[in-house]
């Protein structure tokens, strides 16, 4: 039983991190209808930038801040230089562009930082908990707290602020939003800043959680988050979060317990295929 709870807690942490990365993807898909595969590369860059700031300053706060700023710039650059000019083509064109960016960024990371696994020897300054014999490590606490704060902020922004309303309007129809006086291009860029900042946070958390940062750490998340936004319902942010949480828990529990002769990464794609066959609009999506 104790093992079960430990696995459950790990699963929730895994799910939280999936949720953080998937959110950015859902955000971009919601507004531009582009599958932003390169988002996972932004996440990798976030981990590297965070590690770099951390080893120079020794401050985790600066590491997070530096990662977020760097990734925001990268995200907006991708949007302005690649996606925006490609928007007038059919959706597979920006998708191919996105894959190309992801591969290039991975290679650039390899060239700049080397093809090795770097360690991220930091402990997050969060308390440890004992719950009936189960230990919640400080890293787990950090993942829970940070995810909750990020989700809370995002919920607040998208439902309560002017920006949220402008984002919803922009995601429905860009020309109309323009006619309503919304500078939709600026709104799109803000969405990229938000999504990329969250990706940076996720990258740094993963780096610390596994104590590993390496050039291809974004590859599996790239495909997995793609599966997750399909399962959650394309463009639906609550759907993306729910699907991520479910997957995180299912992966850790099923693979840890049942003797399923499958690599754990296969689960996301089985779920995606199942969703596409029986409920193609996803968990929370609308047709």
């Amino acid at each position: 039983m104790q093992l079960f709870f430990e696995q459950l807690l790990n699963g929730i942490a895994m799910g939280s991190i999936y949720a953080l990365v998937t959110l950015g993807l859902a955000l971009v898909y919601g507004i531009l209808r582009i599958l932003h595969v390169a988002h996972a590369a932004v996440y990798t860059v976030g981990a590297y930038a965070g590690l770099f700031c951390y080893s120079y300053t020794g401050s985790l706060l600066l590491a997070f801040l530096g990662g977020m700023i760097f990734c925001s710039i990268l995200g907006v650059a991708i949007e302005r230089l690649v996606y925006y000019p490609l928007l007038k083509y059919p959706p597979y064109v920006p998708l191919i562009g996105s894959i190309a960016i992801m591969l290039s960024i991975e290679e650039i990371c390899r060239l700049v930082a080397g093809p090795y696994i770097l360690t991220f020897p930091a402990t997050l300054p969060f308390p440890e908990f004992q719950l009936g014999g189960v230990t919640i490590s400080s890293t787990l606490t950090a993942v829970y707290v940070i995810t909750t704060v990020v989700l809370g902020l995002l919920w607040f922004i998208s439902t309560k602020t002017e920006l949220g309303l402008a984002m919803r309007a922009t995601s429905q129809d860009i020309p109309i939003a323009d006619a309503m006086g919304i500078n939709s291009h600026a709104i799109v860029s803000i969405a990229f800043v938000i999504g990329s900042s969250i990706a940076a946070i996720a990258g740094i958390l993963v780096g610390i959680y596994y104590n590993q940062v390496y050039p291809t750490m974004g590859t599996v998340p790239a495909y997995k988050t793609l599966a997750l936004i399909v399962v959650g319902g394309l463009g639906s942010m609550p759907g993306a979060v729910i699907a991520s949480m479910l997957l995180g828990v299912a992966e850790t529990l099923l693979i840890g317990y049942a003797d399923i002769p499958l690599p754990r990464d296969a689960l996301a794609f089985i779920a995606m295929i199942a969703v596409l066959m029986w409920r193609s609009e996803g968990l929370m999506g609308s047709k």
Partner: peptide, 20 residues
């Protein structure tokens, strides 16, 4: 209300204000 925002989308700071 989206259209009403026109009086308010002007500045970056106002974007974070409430719309309701």
């Amino acid at each position: 209300l989206v259209a009403r925002g026109i009086t308010r989308y002007g500045t970056f700071r106002r974007l974070w204000g409430p719309w309701q």
